[in-house]
Design a protein around this nucleic acid. Structure first.
Lengths: 116, 116
DNA sequence: CATATATGCCACCTCCTGGTTGCATATTAA
DNA sequence: TTAATATGCAACCAGGAGGTGGCATATATG
C-alpha cells in the first residue's frame, strides 16, 4: 500500500472512538485473548479477570460498538471474535502521523543546512 | 524490523494509557497540527478550536502524560512538539495483533482443509 | 417437567473526564 | 514603571465510564 493511499484512507477523526475503546487494560486483555483466533463466550472471557460477568459484558459492548469485535449467538451462549479491520486502520493512522513527523523533521533539517 | 522483534517490543498493557490519550477528537486534532513539524504555543493551538485556552491546556497535559508531546519553555510561552515514539509503539501493537489474528485464521483454515 | 447454565436488562453507586470561570504569576513591550 | 500577553493553578460542575447486584429470560440437561 502506497503512502498516499494510506493517507487518503485514514480519516483521523473516525479513529477517536476506536482509540477510546482500546484505552483500557481490561479490554486490551480481552483483545489479546481473542487475537489467538478462537471464539469465546462471555463466561469464558470472564475467567482470569477479577471482574463480574456483567462488568466484562460492558467492556465487550464497548469493543463491539467500536467494531473491534463481533458476536455470534450459538445456542444459549454468544460467542465473540476479533475483527482486525479497525486495528489495521489504527496501524495505518499511527504510521502516517509518525512518518509525517519524520518527513517534517527531514525538511527542517534540510532547511537548516541550506541556511547555515 | 522482524516480526519477532516487534512482538517482543510491544508490552500491550503499557499501550492502554496511550490509546486512552488518543481517544479524543480534540487531542487528535492537536496531534494533526503538531505532526506538521512546527512547535506551537498553547494560544496558537487554541486557535481553531471552540474551547477555552484552559480546556486546550488540559488536553495537552493528557497528551504530555502519555509522552505523545513534549513542552519546552521559551520565554513566557511554552512550546509543544510531537514525540513520535509512542505512535510507533501503537503502530507496532496494532500490526502485531492484527497479524496474529491473520495467522490464527490461516492455521484454522489449514486445520479444516486437513480435516475435511 | 425441573434444574442448571448463559446471558440480557435495569438500577444504582463512585470516580474520572471534559469543560468552564476566576485569579495569580511571569515575561515582554512601551 | 505600567500595561499587555501567555501561562499556571484551583475550584467547580455535569455527564459518562467502570463496576456492582438483582432479577428475568432463554437454552441445555436429567
Amino acid at each position: 500500500m502506497s503512502q498516499r493511499t494510506r493517507s487518503a484512507a485514514v480519516k483521523w477523526r473516525r479513529q477517536a472512538p476506536i482509540f477510546a475503546a482500546l484505552g483500557d487494560e481490561t479490554r486490551l486483555a480481552l483483545i489479546a485473548k481473542l487475537s489467538q483466533g478462537d471464539r469465546h463466550s462471555i463466561a469464558d472471557l470472564t475467567e482470569g479477570t477479577r471482574l463480574t460477568r456483567q462488568g466484562v459484558t460492558k467492556h465487550l459492548r464497548v469493543l463491539q460498538k467500536a467494531r473491534l469485535v463481533r458476536s455470534v449467538k450459538h445456542g444459549r451462549e454468544s460467542l465473540f471474535e476479533l475483527d482486525p479491520a479497525p486495528l489495521r486502520e489504527v496501524r495505518d493512522y499511527a504510521d502516517v502521523v509518525s512518518e509525517s513527523w519524520d518527513r517534517a523533521l527531514a525538511r527542517l533539517r534540510a532547511f537548516v543546512e541550506e541556511d547555515g
